Computed example of a mutant assay.
Amino acid sequence: MSKRKIMGYYHKDNVLLDGLIYCLFLGGMVLCFLLPRLLFKMEPTDFSCTRSIEGVECMLIRKSQFLKPTEIKIHNPVVVDINNCHREDIFGKHYYDPHCYGSSSAEIRSKGVSYKIKIYGGSDSHKVNSIAREINEFLLSSNASSFHKRF
């Protein structure tokens, strides 16, 4: 790289090459941030349950744009809980988890399983409560043979 001093300012000979490198670097950074969002963009989730003599079985199908759909079978679901990121420390004090950023989620529990499966989550708590209420109505008080919800 050669620099020449012209009237007190330095003049660089290959400014076009430096500009091209800068544009390629900036384009690569933008692509690194946008590509995962485009590839893993979630499409609507299907949640369906069927009631039979053996009990209730639910199927959660999550689809993304370019990946194979994820299917989760839930045997003998009990209830859907709302997780508003309320946590309790060892002294019984309640607080909000700072990692949740104001979002809430609907999580389903099943008999014989110690963990919960997240069905839906987002910052719109009214929508999360509505989805949980609809599923709980089917699980707890309905006699319908099947249930389907797309969200």
Rank of each mutant, 00 (worst) to 15 (best):
I72F: 14
D97P: 00
E107A: 11
Y22Q: 12
Y96F: 11
I131H: 11
G122E: 09
I21Y: 08
S2Q: 01
H148R: 10
I74F: 02
M7A: 15
T70F: 09
N129L: 01
C32H: 11
S48R: 01
I135A: 07
E54P: 01
L60M: 02
G27V: 00
S104K: 11
V80K: 03
N14H: 14
E88I: 13
G112S: 06
F25H: 08
T70G: 12
K127G: 05
C100S: 03
N14I: 02
I21E: 05
I117C: 00
F91L: 13
S52H: 04
Y96T: 14
I61A: 09
I117W: 01
L24C: 11
Y9G: 02
P36R: 08
C49I: 00
G28Q: 03
L26K: 15
E43H: 06
K5D: 07
V30N: 01
V15C: 03
R62F: 02
N143R: 13
P98C: 02
K149S: 08
R62H: 07
L31N: 04
A144D: 10
F147K: 08
L34F: 14
D46S: 09
H99Q: 08
L35M: 07
Y10V: 09
S123E: 01
V128H: 08
E71S: 13
Q65A: 10
V78G: 06
V80N: 05
K118H: 01
D18S: 05
H126T: 11
M7E: 13
R4L: 11
V78C: 10
G112H: 11
K5Q: 08
N143E: 10
G92H: 10
C32V: 01
S145M: 10
V15S: 11
I74W: 02
K3P: 06
S130E: 09
L60Y: 12
S142H: 01
V56Y: 03
I108F: 10
V78Y: 00
G102F: 08
K116P: 03
A144M: 04
C58W: 07
A106H: 04
F47L: 14
K5E: 15
T70D: 15
T70S: 09
I6M: 15
E88L: 15
K127I: 08
E57L: 02
G102C: 03
K93T: 14
K116F: 02
K5A: 05
K68M: 02
I135H: 03
D81Q: 14
M42E: 15
V15M: 15
E57A: 14
M29D: 03
S103M: 06
Y115W: 15
S125P: 00
L60T: 11
L20F: 13
